[in-house]
Computed example of a mutant assay.
Amino acid sequence: MRVYLPCTLPALATAVKAGELGPAPLTGYAVTPALVEWYASGDTEELEYVALTEAARASLRMLAADLADGVEAPPRRVVIAAEVPDRSVSAGADLEERGRVRLADAIPMAKVAAVHVDDHEAIADVEAAVAALPAADAGDDDARFTVDGAEAHELMWYATQEIPDLLG
């Protein structure tokens, strides 16, 4: 099963050094039965894009948490696409995030298929979105608009052999 895992560049560097994404359990996003039912008209590619987008939203929250913890993380959303055995994935019942899954095992870097990362042109919008998250969560429509502005940027696709260049 293809899963999309939210990440940040510092967390990706840590995973590369450790040789795996972990420790388990991990939260990811995938084409779940609930997502298929909710998005009935979509094909597999569209559904995978929805899961990728949900993971990018979670990456934005990870960036906010890093900032709150004093971690210097470049303001770029990161999503790791990996192939994992179906047996290690369980889908949740969260109606807000129908594609959310829980992974029971750490994921070896050898199972990573690609990495999706914001282009440098998205940095200002990602910074603004991270700053606006608390107000957006409190219901501020203008802040929600700012958070949505980060999603206007497509994540760039990187092959696994390009990861060292991303981190360099």
Rank of each mutant, 00 (worst) to 15 (best):
L60W: 08
G168M: 01
R2G: 00
A91H: 09
L155D: 02
V16M: 08
E37A: 15
T8S: 14
V78Q: 01
R77V: 11
A51K: 04
P6M: 11
A124W: 01
A93W: 04
E37D: 14
A13Y: 01
L95M: 07
V84Q: 06
G168W: 01
A110K: 12
A11G: 11
V78Y: 00
L167S: 04
T160G: 03
A135P: 02
P75N: 08
V147R: 03
V117T: 08
A51H: 07
M156C: 08
S41L: 02
E54C: 05
L12G: 04
A138N: 11
V36N: 07
G149A: 07
S90F: 00
D86L: 15
P25K: 12
A68Q: 14
L103F: 04
M156K: 14
V36H: 02
S59I: 03
A58Q: 12
Y4F: 15
Y4Q: 03
E151G: 00
A159Y: 13
Y29G: 03
Y29Q: 10
T53K: 11
S88F: 01
L26V: 12
L9H: 11
A34G: 14
E96K: 11
L21Q: 11
G149W: 08
L5K: 02
W157D: 14
H116Y: 15
Y39N: 15
E46Q: 14
